[in-house]
């Protein structure tokens, strides 16, 4: 809105200068061109009315809400059907103090069986470094004791390769099991992988 106001005031000045002398006309037109470009007026978009754009945008928003609702229902269905709460186990990966680390990959084995491995993209690594938690595995396990073995591979801030491996035994109860696996950047080489089960 402001930009349009500005454009009008400049336009008025251009009108005022109009026809005074040739060079002035050239310069004024050039400056009008530059200002128009600076103000970034969507010339072509004017052919389609704002109402049309707004109306379609609202319909797109509505369908997004509908599809999100389906997604939520589907997730709940999947959880009930594929991972019932009495057998469900989820493993999460988190990074801590690992801003300078370039974690390339992680491997996870449960009870000696490899269940997950992941190669990190830059975006994923950044999301983990900013505090996000990655669900690396969701599966079903009997109640009782189970072992988890985790291995991280990557490069340190100085460019040296590192491989960190750790094991953990957790007890799966009647409810869903959640185990958080944290790689501590500050403790590489000694106890850098920490586990906590909830």
């Amino acid at each position: 809105m402001y930009l349009q106001v500005r454009r009008l005031s400049i336009f008025r000045k251009v009108i005022a200068f109009g026809g005074s002398f040739h060079s002035m006309k050239i310069a004024v037109k050039w400056s009008l061109l530059v200002l128009t470009c600076l103000l970034q007026l969507p010339v072509a978009a004017q052919e389609i009315s704002k109402e049309q754009i707004k109306g379609l945008d609202e319909q797109v928003q509505d369908i997004k809400a509908d599809v999100l609702a389906i997604s939520t229902e589907l997730k709940l269905l999947e959880e009930k059907l594929l991972y019932p709460s009495n057998t469900q186990v989820s493993l999460f990966v988190a990074l801590e103090g690992a801003d300078s680390l370039r974690v390339d990959a992680v491997e996870v084995a449960v009870d000696g069986n490899p269940v997950a491995h992941h190669i990190y993209s830059f975006k994923e690594l950044e999301a983990l470094q900013k505090g996000g938690l990655q669900r690396i595995y969701t599966g079903n396990l009997r109640t009782g004791e189970h072992s988890i073995k985790v291995g991280f591979k990557g490069l340190t801030g100085l460019g040296n390769e590192f491989t960190e491996v750790a094991s953990y035994t957790f007890s799966k109860g009647v409810g869903p099991g959640i185990v958080e696996i944290r790689l501590l950047g500050s403790a590489l080489g000694s106890n850098s992988i920490q586990f906590s089960d909830q």
Partner: peptide, 19 residues
């Protein structure tokens, strides 16, 4: 304590995967 599933949502949000 932090909720792991909330953390997972943040993991996707940080990657601009808002859906």
């Amino acid at each position: 304590q932090r909720d792991a599933f909330f953390g997972e949502a943040l993991f996707y949000a940080q990657q601009q995967e808002f859906f």
